[in-house]
Each structure stands twice: as structure tokens, then as C-alpha cells.
Design a protein around this nucleic acid. Structure first.
Lengths: 331, 331
DNA sequence: CGCGCGGACTAGAACGTTCTAGAGTCGATC
DNA sequence: GATCGACTCTAGAACGTTCTAGTCCGCGCG
């Protein structure tokens, strides 16, 4: 059924309507230069023949593609929120998005490679582990904006959340509730964990609580949180800030199994506002990243670079926001 | 920096290497018809000039695109698992994937439209609410495979899980544990809920438990599950099968707050094996869909249609699998 | 009456590939 | 020594658009 039949092209429509190909092109684009009557007739014929423009041919001819490549990881729920924001932002400035996913068996290089062949005008990379040198190599070809990670290279733009500030917001919230013995569960070597840890330190010092500083090894997974909870058994603090939500969930689980009441005996703050942290059953107080702001800024950085505007600020840092739910309460 | 400089093309490489454009094309494709020495030299030049093939031009010329369009919803975690499987399957048969996302502010029509312009050879649609008539309209243009929903139209292929069987597996599991008073929380009008409800009925009858059949109104969300739990307060059954995991989570939460022990007092089975159901804190027994099988079958259906193979089986139904975790136990 | 002007339309070249057909070279076979 | 085949390479058309540079026509104006 779909075997031999070529798709209808401008030429088909032109022949049927008895006009030139160029004129049909004009009509289809809504460009000026066609009479009202002809325009009407051409559109009718196009509809009747089921004409669909071929974006490849279109873009091939007109140098610009107005196409932005996005690399995201299917495993990271936050990336999906970000995609939503990015589609919105792209629509506003008249760009299209093409997506390329990273999966457990499809790495970033493959994903980026695919987008380069699609002749995107810029790349937006969510997180990822590509080395600065590799990124620079890509950035020599076309503008690259990375999100949710830091990159020290003048050709690579960065849009990220102020993790340093986020940790401080968590601590401030706990201190306001009367907590003093506040521990922090670390993220290990993962991107962002150093900043979150430093923010914790900073806030504790600011509140004159340096003597109560306590940092436990953790990680990005539930099991890391569970291990940290076990380590807390001797003399638990009254509150904990945790590297991320998943880790916080593992911690919470062990605490509750140990018979502790949350937030009665101990308060917990996560980080990321992952979708599951909203579940009534988990109901985790956490630090949320401002998705729309991040998407908007990433997009405008990309467009500025494409259009050759001077780069005023290579690194954009967005303040996060505390979301208070049920895992924090008075000391 | 990225302003005036055209990207390097085959012609540039050809000129620099002192050969014809056609030969460079041959070398870049790894096609036979070039001497070893020249091949080497051309590759070197291409690398030096940073040549990147232009997939648009390439595909434009060679009628085939070997491109499959995929429409997924950013909000649905299960779609991401499926994407992973689909990338794998596509890689195996030499097809590329282009993704188009549905977001809260970007609907299915927009997503499909974009893919049509990219000249995909077939479309794979995850779930979605498009009406059969609309789907048929698209399917008249190119092969369409829908997943995780039923469509009664001879041009639209379907790959889905056997929800009828899944519900029965849940009931069988509970009966094997000694449960007899087993209730079902319904999904309301959502796709798939009728089948899951019927499977429950069927299994209860098969086990001679028709007198204990009890169906409660529910839905897809946590709050629906919470409401169902409240409705159970007078004379709770010893076990419940629930429309999906999110709903089950809401139910669980209320049950536990009511002081019931799960699975001591009551067992709960969810449906979908959503990522959060694996969290230690939730640890939900559930019915999992076979992602790899679904992806594989969807892909082979698409390819068969593209290549004009006779359609032997329009609807592929994959059996689901029970995943036993911590929310079920002996009666 | 000739000229210029603007609107409607068209021919044909581009865009960067791939594909078809064929040209040239060299060594082996008859 | 002519013919063949294999191999390497090339010229040029094609894909479906958009863009540039027109042509054609009618009309108003000097």
C-alpha cells in the first residue's frame, strides 16, 4: 500500500493546479507574491492531494534550519520536566527541537553525533559526563549549552541551578524550625554534590552551628541513603539535608523502620523535587529547580550564540526554591 | 564565530583531496569502489576539515530515510523505558529514530505533524488519545503502530499488553497465598481499565470466588486510590488488586495511616511496575509489562509494513509478568 | 504615445548528497 | 595483438525545496 506511491510534491500540486512550482512554494509558505484567487485554488489542490512539505528539502535549500538539538537521558525524570519547558521556549522564538535520547545502551556520543548530522544550529545537553575537551571539540562546530553541570571553557555555555544556595535554603528552613543539630548526607563524586556540601557548610557557619556540622557519605541511590541512615543510629541529629530525593527516600525508609517519627523525631530535606517526592506516601520537603527559568535561559543563550550576539554571561545560575512538604517540622 | 563559515561539504573535501565529489561520497559511505590508498587519503582530509555528512541532503537524494517517528509523552515514566527498548530494536534492523514529545502544552497532533514533515517511513505512537478516525487518516499516509492501546481499524497496527491476563495473574497470586476476599479498584474510563476489570472478574469466577467480587471506583491518580481506601473501611477485604501503581500508592498510604499492616492485614497488587514502585519505601507487588518484547514487536511490525510484507497479525498482545515485592503476603 | 511601475507569475539555478552510466587503465586470456 | 573483465574513478542528473532574476501585463502619468 505504501510501497510504490511517491509522496506528492510541489511539482504534483503545481501540475494539477496549472501553475509553476515556484508559485506553489510561495503559497505554501504564505509568502507575498500570489493573487488571492490563485492562492485559494492552490491551497485547495494541495489539500486534495494530501500535500505535506518535506522539511529536509526545505531546510537543505534555505541554509538555516532553525533546529535545536537536545540530548536528554531517558532515566532522569527531571529531564522530562525540562523538555516540556524547552518546547515552550523554542516555540516562542520560532525554533524547532529535535531530540536525541541517552539510554542505558546508547551513549552521549551517539546521541550528539546524530544531532550533528541533522544540521542543528545549536546543541543543548542535559547533564551528562562528557569531558570538557570533548565538549570543546563539539563547541568548535556549533554553539553548545550544557545544563545542570558546570563546564569551564569559554565556548561552552552553562545554565544551572545554584546548588550552593539550594543547600543553604534547606538549612535555613530547618534552622527557622528550631533545629540545631543538622547533618548532611553527601552525594559522593557526582556532579553538584561538592557545591551542595559546601552550601551546607556555609549555612551552618552563618548560623553559628559549625560545631554541629556532620557530613555522612552517601550517593545518588536509595541504598546510599539507607546506609547513611544506619550510620546515624548512634546519636541521630534532629534534622538531615540529603544530596537528592532518591537518597532521601532510602534514608526515610530506614528511619521509619527504626521506629523514628518523621518529622516528629527527625526532619528530612531532599533535593530535586523529583516527581515521586510529591507522592502522599513520601511527601518529601525538597529543593526544586526552576524548570521554566532554566529552559528559557538555555534557549536564549543558544539563540544568542547562533545569531552571533556578544556573550555577556557565559554561565547562568538560577536560584532554586524550597518546597515545604511533610518531612520537616519543629525541632 | 559560527556566523559566516559554511560547513564543509563533500565538494570541499573533494577539492582538497584532488578527487571527484562522487568518490568522496563512496569513501564516506564505506561503499565499494575506491582504492585503499585514495580511501585513506580522503578520510584523512575529511577528518582534517571536520567534515560532517548532512543527513538531510543524504536522505533527500536516496528516497529512503530509514527513519521511524516516535511520539511519546514526557509525563509517562513507562514511555521512557519503552524508548530504551525501541532504540535497541531500531539499531538492530538499521533504522534511526526521531522523537517527538507530547507535553502538557504540546499535543499529539503537533507531535505527529512534525514527524510527517521529517519524512519518517512509519510512526510509532505511545498510548495517546487520538480518535480512530484521525489515526486512520494518518495511517493512509504511512504505516502507524500504536502501543498500549487498542484500535479497531485494519490499517493501524497495535502492540499492547494483555491486561486481561495481567489482572488474572494478580488474582492468581493472591489466591495462591490463601486470599479469598479480594477486591478490585477500578480505573474509571481510562484506556485499559475495562480489560483489567474483566480479567479480575474472570479470575474470581474461575476460582469459585464470585460471591466475594467487589469493585470499587478508582482512577489513575493517588487521590483515587486514597478515596478507594476510605471506601474500604467498613469490612476491608484481605487483598486488593488496583488499576495502576499510582492509585495503589494512594491506597497504601491511607491503609497504613489507618493502622493496618501491609501485607499482614491486607495485601495490595499494583499494575505497571512504575519506577517508583521499586523504591524500598513502597516496594509494591505489581504486574510488569514486557518492555523489550513490546519494543521488538512494534519495530518489526513497522518494518514489515514499510517493506510491504503481508500483515498476518494486526494486533500483537504481549503477556505481562507478575513481580512479587513486599505488599503481598499470606492471608 | 512612450515610459515607468507594481503586481502576478515563471524559469532555472542552487542546496549537499547519492546514483547511474560510463571512461580510463591494467593485466590476463584467447 | 585484440578482447575481456575487474577495478578505480568521474561527469552529470536527480531528490524537493527556495531563491534570484527575470517576463508579462495592465495602468497611470507626463
Amino acid at each position: 500500500m505504501h510501497a510504490g506511491d511517491r509522496r506528492t510534491t510541489l511539482a504534483d500540486v503545481a501540475a494539477e493546479a496549472g501553475v509553476s512550482v515556484a508559485l506553489v512554494s510561495i503559497v505554501m509558505r504564505g509568502a507575498p507574491g500570489a493573487g488571492a484567487a490563485t492562492r485559494e485554488r492552490v491551497l485547495e489542490v494541495a489539500r486534495r492531494l494530501g500535500y505535506q512539505p518535506d522539511s529536509r528539502a526545505r531546510l537543505l535549500r534555505s541554509g538555516r534550519t532553525r533546529l535545536l538539538g537536545v540530548v536528554f537521558d531517558v532515566r532522569h525524570p527531571f529531564h522530562h520536566d525540562l523538555l516540556t519547558g524547552l518546547y515552550d521556549a523554542a516555540g516562542r522564538v520560532g525554533y524547532e527541537l529535535t531530540l536525541s535520547a541517552v539510554t542505558p545502551r546508547r551513549d552521549e556520543h551517539t546521541a550528539v553525533e546524530g544531532l550533528l548530522q541533522d544540521r542543528c544550529e545549536a546543541l543543548v545537553l542535559f547533564g551528562g559526563r562528557m569531558r570538557t575537551a570533548e565538549l570543546a571539540g563539539v563547541a568548535a562546530r556549533l554553539p553548545v549549552v550544557t545544563m545542570m553541570r558546570g563546564v569551564r571553557h569559554r565556548d561552552v555555555d552553562v545554565v544551572r541551578t545554584d546548588d550552593h544556595l539550594g543547600s543553604q535554603q534547606a538549612v535555613d528552613h530547618l534552622v527557622a524550625l528550631g533545629h540545631r543539630r543538622i547533618a548532611h548526607v553527601d552525594g559522593g563524586g557526582i556532579h553538584g554534590s561538592a557545591e551542595r556540601r559546601l552550601g551546607y557548610h556555609e549555612a551552618m557557619r552563618r548560623h553559628g552551628l559549625s560545631e554541629h556540622v556532620r557530613v555522612l557519605p552517601g550517593g545518588a541511590g536509595e541504598e546510599d541513603g539507607a546506609r547513611a541512615a544506619a550510620a546515624l543510629r548512634d546519636g541521630p541529629p534532629t534534622a538531615v539535608t540529603v544530596f537528592n530525593d532518591l537518597c532521601a527516600t532510602g534514608l526515610l525508609d530506614v528511619l521509619r523502620r527504626d521506629g523514628l517519627d518523621v518529622p516528629g523525631d527527625i526532619s528530612v530535606v531532599g533535593y530535586d523535587d523529583s516527581s515521586f517526592s510529591r507522592l502522599a506516601h513520601i511527601d518529601l520537603t525538597t529543593i526544586a529547580q526552576d524548570v521554566d527559568a532554566m529552559a528559557g535561559r538555555a534557549l536564549s543563550r543558544a539563540v544568542e550564540r547562533i545569531e552571533g550576539a556578544p556573550v555577556t554571561q557565559r554561565e547562568v545560575v538560577i536560584p532554586p526554591r524550597l518546597v515545604v512538604r511533610g518531612t520537616t517540622g519543629p525541632a
